[in-house]
Design a protein around this nucleic acid. Structure first.
Length: 453
RNA sequence: GUGGGUAUAGCGUAGUUGGUUAACGCGUCAGUUUGUGGCACUGAAGACCGUCGGUUCGAAUCCGACUAUCCACCCCA
């Protein structure tokens, strides 16, 4: 097709046939997060470039080569957010949330942008669900956010996601550890790959998760951070594990986990799957006690995580997870003729005002074609509206699940419709009495499971 | 940024050693007597075979470049 342009590389359209999945995921995450006491925060898509340089870290790949940065017309350097934490911290400080009761627990669902080469599970525009907790120093909080992420995976019915945790200590113990690492790797410097040679002085911890076979072989016997933790950090880590154990969360301590964002301290963790290609980290996060001070706030501890919606979706699709689809049309009115169609639009409006989903023809098709369409969109009921019906003031309401038809008066149509629907629902469920029967539930498809074939 | 794979109707595919009107399934639309869906049948619409250039009497089929896309490295969600 001769389209003038296509979607930008690394971006995706979400079509109606798929969007309900994301809605379901997002809705689930919101509810769970709110059960844990987190509340939503929304921040701008773009920020001053400096924010990310300072928080994510000048030496990180994200800042050095992956940011969408441009000058706006006022000459400001602007960057599309590559992750969610920086903006959340900025908003926390700028709006004085530190004056509120601690801890401040926030979550967000946002798009992020990174100029990378797209591949499985990696897009240039992607979406993250994230949580941040400000002002809670206790290991209980580290554990709480891990539990929260875990709960999301459980709720969505996912399997085979492993939780890997580590502690990278505070700046003091990390310094000692990095010295130890440097002296260890220096002995093997000739065997290291070129990138790792460069990492040796700048950030030796990155060598640990180098994928090159030689480097990872050498890294196997490298000093382990956990042996270099100060008493405080060690206790903190032990306590995190205790909380996880107490809540029966399985995890693997992986001393090789080093996160690529500079702000992390102490606890770091990843939820990893091996079913969605090379980009297996579905969720990653940890504690970042130094960041808020670094950004000009009073020393405030914090922790959080980011969870990739697209990767989660990928995993759910490969695991053939169930997504409840709410395709809703309670009544489709098949009409013929202009006067009938106008009446149909009035009836539809009445139903819609009562919170019911109603549709009628706007294409000008035959009754048969309209019925087909009604079937396709999953209409629960249909009704043909022709000259006879208009004259008599009655029509026949057809239950599309069993094909039965019922007389219905057009006066007080909405009430008549609802009582017929309720009666049919009661009949269908007559064997098992139900409490708190909700009309909208019935109409949204509750009936379809029963009373047909 | 570096590799490798792939590019045929909306989607998924077939197209045999280059040879006349590019095939099939799904989907879409319309019919199969009168105003009622799901099944079945019939038919229709829809593709300059990614783009440009080359080889050849002749190319979707061979070659080259470009572009897009996928996968991997790297990095991360």
């Amino acid at each position: 097709m001769g389209l003038i342009t296509k979607a930008v590389k690394g971006t995706l359209d979400t079509l109606p046939a798929e969007s309900y999945k994301q809605q379901y995921i997002e809705q689930s995450m919101r509810e769970i997060a709110e059960n844990y006491g987190f509340r939503e925060m929304r921040t701008p898509v773009f920020e001053h470039t400096e924010l990310f340089q300072r928080s994510v870290g000048e030496t990180t790949d994200v800042v050095q080569k992956e940011m969408y940065t441009f000058d706006d017309k006022g000459g400001r350097s602007i960057t599309l957010r590559p992750e969610g934490t920086a903006g959340a911290v900025r908003a926390f400080l700028e709006n004085g949330l530190f004056n509120e009761a601690m801890p401040q627990k926030i979550y967000y669902l946002t798009s992020c942008y990174r100029y990378e080469k797209p591949q499985a599970g990696r897009l240039r525009e992607f979406h993250q669900f994230g949580v941040e907790c400000f002002g809670a120093p206790a290991a209980a909080e580290d554990a709480e956010i891990i539990l929260l992420a875990n709960e999301i995976f459980n709720y969505l019915g996912l399997n085979n996601i492993t939780l890997e945790i580590n502690s990278i200590g505070c700046p003091e113990c990390r310094k000692k550890y990095q010295d130890a690492l440097r002296s260890y790797f220096r002995e093997h410097i000739d065997s290291l790959c070129d990138t790792c040679k460069g990492r040796l002085e700048k950030n030796p911890m990155r060598i640990l998760d180098c994928k090159s076979p030689v480097c990872s072989e050498i890294a196997k016997n490298a000093p382990v951070i956990l042996d270099y933790l100060c008493d405080d950090c060690r206790e903190h880590f032990e306590l995190v594990k205790k909380y996880l154990d107490a809540n029966e969360i399985e995890y693997k301590v992986n001393p090789m986990i080093v996160r690529g964002l500079d702000y992390y301290t102490k606890t770091v963790f990843e939820f990893v799957s091996n079913e969605i290609g090379a980009q297996g980290t579905v969720c990653g996060g940890g504690r970042y006690d130094g960041l808020i001070e670094e950004m000009g706030g009073k020393p405030t501890c914090a922790c959080g995580f980011g969870l990739g919606i697209e990767r989660l979706l990928l995993l759910m699709d490969t695991q053939k997870s169930e997504f409840p689809e709410k395709k809703r049309c309670d009544l489709y009115i098949a009409s013929l003729g202009e006067a009938e169609n106008i009446r149909a639009s009035q009836l539809a409006t009445d139903l819609r005002n009562e919170g019911l989903a109603a549709e009628f023809d706007t294409v000008g098709r035959s009754v048969k074609a309209q019925m087909k369409y009604a079937d396709k969109i999953g209409a629960l009921y249909t009704m043909v509206l022709g000259t006879d019906e208009l004259e008599n003031g009655t029509a026949r309401l057809k239950n599309m699940t069993d094909g039965t038809q019922t007389e219905i008066k057009l006066d007080d149509f909405c009430d008549n419709f609802q009582s017929i629907v309720i009666k049919q629902a009661m009949d269908a469920f007559s064997d098992s009495p139900i409490e708190g029967l909700d009309l909208t539930q019935i109409l949204s498809g509750g009936l379809t499971e029963n009373g047909n074939d």
